[in-house]
Design a protein around this nucleic acid. Structure first.
Ligand SMILES: [Zn+2]
Ligand SMILES: [Zn+2]
Ligand SMILES: [Zn+2]
Ligand SMILES: [Zn+2]
Lengths: 566, 566
DNA sequence: GCGCCGTTATCGCGTCATTA
DNA sequence: TAATGACGCGATAACGGCGC
C-alpha cells in the first residue's frame, strides 16, 4: 500500500517527459502465496555522456526446484502428431494403457533391467524440497515404442514399428503402459476414437464416390479389387501398409513394469553430455577462420572489460534499496578502451560461434551472413552482426546480401529457401522454413561450470531501437534478470562480466549439438525461447543464465574487432 | 570508476552459483544485502511477500524532441469477435442444441453410411460407475468442437475451428450433440470403437489405393473431386489419424442431431463477423458464456487502475539523479484490488484491441483468441494470455488461416485467405504471410497525449521464463528504458501507470492506423519492431514509449480476473 | 460439467559423433 | 565414407486445474 504511494510519487516525478531513470524496486505486494522473493541490487552510475548505460538486476520469484534431474535422460522422443494413438496399444490389451487419470504416481516402471529410462522421473525425492506443494508429476502414455523413444526417431506406432523392423529388432518394439489401466477408458479417449470414426467414415464415403466416378467414367477398372474394397469395410487384403492389425494385436505392451526389454542400454545419459561433457571437444583451437575471431577464446575476458565498465561515468544514480542498479559508462571514452574488450569478447564468441558454423550452421541474414563452409575458415559475417541477428535462419548460407533493411515493401525473397527449391511449387514452407531465429546456434551456448556445477548460458538477440540492451536472465533459485543498456561494447562487457562471474565459462563455447534451430513458420522467437528456458531449467536444476540482447545496430562488428564505435 | 568497482563487487557476490539475488524475498536466500553499495535496501517496505517487483529506467542517448501534436486520438473500436456460439451449430438445426437435460443418451450417431455401429455407446449410465442414483446430470451442449474439447484447448467455434484447421484436421472438427457423458466408458465399448476405427482405416487406405491406381493408370483424371479427396490420405505416414479431408463440407455433427448447419462454407467474411455482425446472434443469452468476458469494454478503465496502481507499494527506492527508478507495488494487497484493475485492463484492452479486430485484426492464438464483438461484451481470451500474445498475427480473425500449419505435409491451403485463393497455386506465402507477431494489435497501441504532445505507446509482449517482466522503452530525448519485474498484476500496474503518467492515455487505446502488421515471411518480429519504432520516432519527433513485456507464464488469466497469483 | 489457460511430457528432425 | 548411435531442442500433445 504505502509502496504504492511512494511509487506513485516517484512516478510523477518522472512523469511526462522522460524521467530520468530510476529503478526502483517495488516490492510488490506480498504475493499471496508468497513466493520467493528476490532481491536485486543496483549499481548506480552511469551516465556519463549521452549514453549512459545502466544495468539492473531483478530477482524474481519462482522457481521450483524439485525437478530433479531431468526427466529422462536419454530418450525422449517425440513425435509429431499424428497417429494419435497407437491403435494396437489399446487394443485387446487387457489393460492397455490408457492413461487414466490415475496413473499418477509411482509406478514407474523401471525395473527390469535396465531401464532406467524414466529413471528419474520422479524418483527423487521429489519434490524436493520440501514444501509442500506436492505437485504431482504428470505422466503420459508413450506413443512411440521404447526403442524409438530411446533413439529419438520417429516411430510409426505400428506394432513392430517400421524402424524396429528395419533393424530386425522387432522384439524390442514395445510399449510400457503407464498405468494400471482401468477397465474404463477415459472419456477423452473414447471421444477421440469416436471422432476418428466419424472422420474416417466420411473419408471413406468420399473415396468411394471418387472411385465410383472414376470407375464409371474412366472405365478402366484398374484395380479389380475396387469393388471388393469398397463394399464392406472389411479388411480384405492388406494391400499395403503394414496392416495395422485389426483388433487383437497388442503385442508387446508391457505392463507397467518392465518395460523394455533387454537391450537398450541405459542411456548414457544425457546428463553427461549436457552437463559437462561437451566441453571437451571444443574445437576452439584454431579456429579458423572466422573473421571475427580475433583473439582466441581466452583473450581478454570480461574481467578486463568489466573493469573498464566499472569506470563508466556513473551519474549519481541512487540505488534503490532492493534492486541493484548500475550504470554503464557511456560515452566516448569508453569506446576506446572498449575496443580491446570487445575484441576479446568477439574472439571468444567468434570462436565458439564461428567454429560452429560449419558444424552448427550459421544464420545468414537476409543480408545474409554467410556461413563458411565446413572446411574451415571462411565465413564472414559476425554472428552478432545485425544482419545475422535479424535475418531468418537460412541454411544455405551462400547468399549474401547485406541485409535488406527491414523495408517492408521489399519482398526480396526472404529466403530462397534452401531445401528443395521448388520453383514452380513455391515452398512447402512448412517445416524447415527457417523462419526466423533468435535462439540460433550462435546465441545458444553453454559452458563448463566454473564454480561448482555446470551452468548454462543462452543468449538471444533481439533488435530494437537505438540502444543496446542486454538482458541477462538467470534461472537460479531466485530467477534473476539483468538488464544492461549502453553501447555495443558496454553491453558486451557486461555480458562477459556476467558470464565470468557466473562461471559460465567462455561465452564462445558452444553446445555440442545445439544447432541453429529452424523455427516453424509463425512461431515467435520468444515463444521458442520460452520453451528452451523452461526445459533447461527443469532439466538440470542448476543455475542457468539467459542473455537477451536488445539492440539496434548489429554489434557483431564491434564485437569482432573490439571496436566500440557505436 | 567507483561505480565500476561497486558494480563489480556486486557481481562477484553473486557470482558463481546462483547468487541469490537480490531482492528477494526468497526464502531461501538471505538477501544479499549487499547489492550495490548504494542503497540496496530492500525495500523493505514492501516486503511482504515473495515477489517483489522492481522497475528501472535507464536513460539513453539519442534524440530529438520536438513532438508535435498527436496523431489521432481516439480510435478504438472494434471488438473482437468470437462466435459466441457455434453458429453452424445452431443454425438450421431444429433442435440444435438444446440444452435440455435430457439428451443424455440418445445420440446415436449418425452415420451416413451406415453403420452406426456402436450406437450405444454410452450406454451409459450405467455403470459408469456404479451404482448409484441415477443422477441426472444435465449436460450442456458443447460449445467447443470435439477435438478442442479433448485437447482442452480453446475452440473458436468456427466450423472448422482454427485449432483444427491449424492442425489440418478439419475433418475432425465436429460437434456431437451431446456428449457421451460418463467419464469413463467401458472397455468393451471402447474396444468396439477402436475396432471400427481400424476397419475404417483400413478401408480408407484401400480405397485410396484404388483411387490412386485408377487415376494414374486410368489416366482418366476426371473426377475433379478426386484429387481433393485423396490428398489427405497421401501423406502416407500417418498411419492413423484422420487425414484431414479437404475442406469441403462434411457435416460434422455427429451425435444425433447434428447440428451444424448450413453454411460451413467459406467463412462469412471475416470482416463482417469480426466487426460487429456476429454478436447479434450470440445466443448466449444466458449463458454464457464466456468466461472471461466480464466487464464490458468500457468498464473500468485505466484511470482507475492507474490510481490504484499509484498506490502500489512503492518501496522506498531512491531516484537517481539522472535516472529514475520506481518500484511497483506488488503484493497481494494489490492483488485484490488489482483484480478490478486487471479486469479492467483486460476489458480495456479487449475493447481497444478487440475493436480493432475488424480493422486491425485480432490475433488468434493457437488456442485462438477470439475477440468480442463491439457490441458488447463477449469475448474471451484475454489479450494478455500467453496464447494471444504468442500467436502470429492472423488477419482474419476467426476464420481461416491460422497460420498455415507448418505441417509440412499438409498443404492445406495455408490461408485460404480471403484474397484470391488460388487453389492450384498454393500460396505464395511470401508476403502477407502473417508470419508472427509481437507487435500485434493488442500489443501495439498508442494514446493521446496528456501533457503536451502526443506520445506513442507500443507494447510488445514476449514470453520468457518464470517471471513477468516489463520493459518500457521510451523514446524520448534521452531514450529510456523501464524494466519492471514482478507478478502479472504488478506488471500491469506498472504499465498502466506509465501510460498514464506519460500521457499515453489508456492502455487499451489503440493506434489509429496501427493495424496488425503482417510481417513478411521470415521477418523477425523484433526487426519489425525496430522499424516501427524508428519510423515513429522520426516521423513525429515526439516522445515515444515502447513496452515490452517479458513473461513466462501467461498472465492472461490473472489479468482477466485480476488475480495476482504469481 | 465445461471451457480453456498454462505447464509438462512426448515426439522426432536434423546434426554430430562414432563406428564399421 | 556410409551407417549407426546419440541427442539438442523446437513443436506438440496432454492434462492439471481453475473459474464459473
Ligand atoms: Zn517404434
Ligand atoms: Zn519399435
Ligand atoms: Zn475446436
Ligand atoms: Zn475443431
Amino acid at each position: 500500500m504505502d509502496d504504492n504511494n511512494a511509487r506513485k510519487r516517484r512516478r510523477s516525478q518522472q512523469t511526462t517527459s522522460l524521467p530520468p531513470i530510476t529503478h526502483l524496486y517495488l516490492p510488490g505486494a506480498p504475493p499471496p502465496s508468497a513466493v520467493a522473493g528476490s532481491s536485486s541490487s543496483a549499481v548506480g552510475s552511469g551516465g556519463g555522456g549521452g549514453n549512459g548505460g545502466s544495468t539492473t538486476i531483478v530477482g524474481n520469484v519462482t522457481t521450483h526446484t524439485t525437478t530433479t534431474a531431468s526427466d529422462v535422460p536419454a530418450y525422449a522422443s517425440g513425435g509429431a502428431a499424428y497417429p494419435p494413438f497407437p491403435s494396437h496399444l489399446a487394443m485387446g490389451d487387457p489393460h492397455a494403457h490408457h492413461p487414466g487419470p490415475t496413473y499418477a504416481i509411482s509406478h514407474h516402471q523401471r525395473d527390469l533391467s535396465g531401464g532406467d529410462m524414466y529413471a528419474l522421473a520422479e524418483s527423487e525425492g521429489d519434490d524436493a524440497d520440501q514444501h509442500g506443494p506436492p505437485k504431482k508429476k504428470r505422466r503420459r502414455q508413450a506413443l512411440s515404442c521404447t526403442e524409438c523413444k530411446r533413439r529419438k526417431i520417429k516411430c510409426d506406432r505400428n506394432h513392430p514399428c517400421t524402424p524396429c523392423k528395419r533393424r530386425g529388432e522387432e522384439s524390442a518394439c514395445q510399449w510400457h503402459s503407464i498405468e494400471p489401466v482401468e477397465k474404463y477408458t477415459t472419456k477423452v479417449e473414447f471421444e477421440h476414437l469416436r471422432n476418428e470414426v466419424t472422420v474416417l467414415r466420411d473419408r471413406c464415403e468420399r473415396l468411394e464416390n471418387v472411385v465410383r466416378s472414376l470407375m464409371s467414367g474412366g472405365g478402366g477398372g484398374v484395380g479389380g479389387s475396387v469393388p471388393s474394397a469398397i463394399p464392406s469395410g472389411l479388411p480384405s487384403n492388406p494391400p499395403l501398409q503394414p496392416p495395422s492389425t485389426t483388433s487383437t494385436s497388442t503385442p508387446h505392451m508391457i505392463g507397467s513394469t518392465h518395460y523394455y526389454s533387454a537391450h537398450d542400454s541405459p542411456a548414457p545419459s544425457y546428463a553427461a553430455i549436457a552437463e559437462g561433457a561437451s566441453h571437451h571437444h571444443r574445437t576452439s583451437s584454431g579456429s579458423g577462420g572466422y573473421p571475427y575471431v580475433k583473439t582466441e577464446g581466452a583473450g581478454m575476458r570480461s574481467p578486463t572489460m568489466a573493469s573498464r565498465m566499472r569506470m563508466g561515468g556513473g551519474s549519481g544514480g541512487e540505488m534503490s534499496p532492493s534492486m541493484g542498479h548500475m550504470g554503464v559508462g557511456g560515452g566516448s571514452g569508453s569506446g576506446i578502451h572498449a575496443g580491446g574488450g570487445m575484441a576479446g569478447m568477439g574472439g571468444g564468441m567468434g570462436m565458439g560461434i564461428g567454429g560452429g558454423m560449419g558444424t552448427m550452421g550459421m544464420s545468414t541474414g537476409v543480408g545474409g551472413g554467410v556461413a563458411a563452409s565446413s572446411g574451415g575458415s571462411a565465413l564472414k559475417s559476425s554472428p552478432l552482426a545485425l544482419s545475422s541477428i535479424t535475418s531468418p535462419y537460412h541454411p544455405d548460407a551462400s547468399a549474401s546480401t547485406p541485409l535488406p533493411p527491414p523495408q517492408l515493401g521489399a519482398q526480396s525473397q526472404p529466403h530462397s529457401l534452401t531445401a528443395s527449391g521448388l520453383p514452380g511449387q513455391p515452398q512447402q514452407q512448412s517445416k524447415n522454413c527457417h523462419a526466423q531465429m533468435l535462439i540460433l546456434g550462435e546465441r545458444l551456448r553453454r559452458a563448463v561450470v566454473r564454480g561448482e556445477g555446470p551452468v548454462s548460458f543462452i543468449a538471444a538477440v533481439v533488435v530494437v531501437v537505438q540502444l543496446v540492451v542486454v538482458v541477462l536472465l538467470r534461472l537460479a533459485e531466485p530467477v534473476q534478470l539483468v538488464v544492461v543498456e549502453g553501447t555495443a561494447e558496454e553491453v558486451m562487457e557486461e555480458v562477459m562480466a556476467v558470464a565470468e562471474e557466473t562461471g559460465m565459462g567462455e561465452a564462445g563455447e558452444r553446445i555440442p549439438q545445439a544447432r541453429p534451430k529452424t523455427l516453424n513458420q509463425g512461431t515467435t522467437p520468444t515463444k521458442a525461447l520460452s520453451t528452451v528456458l523452461n526445459r533447461r531449467a527443469e532439466r538440470r536444476r542448476a543455475t542457468m543464465t539467459v542473455i537477451v540482447i536488445v539492440t539496434t545496430r548489429g554489434i557483431g562488428r564491434e564485437i569482432a574487432r573490439g571496436r566500440g564505435s557505436a
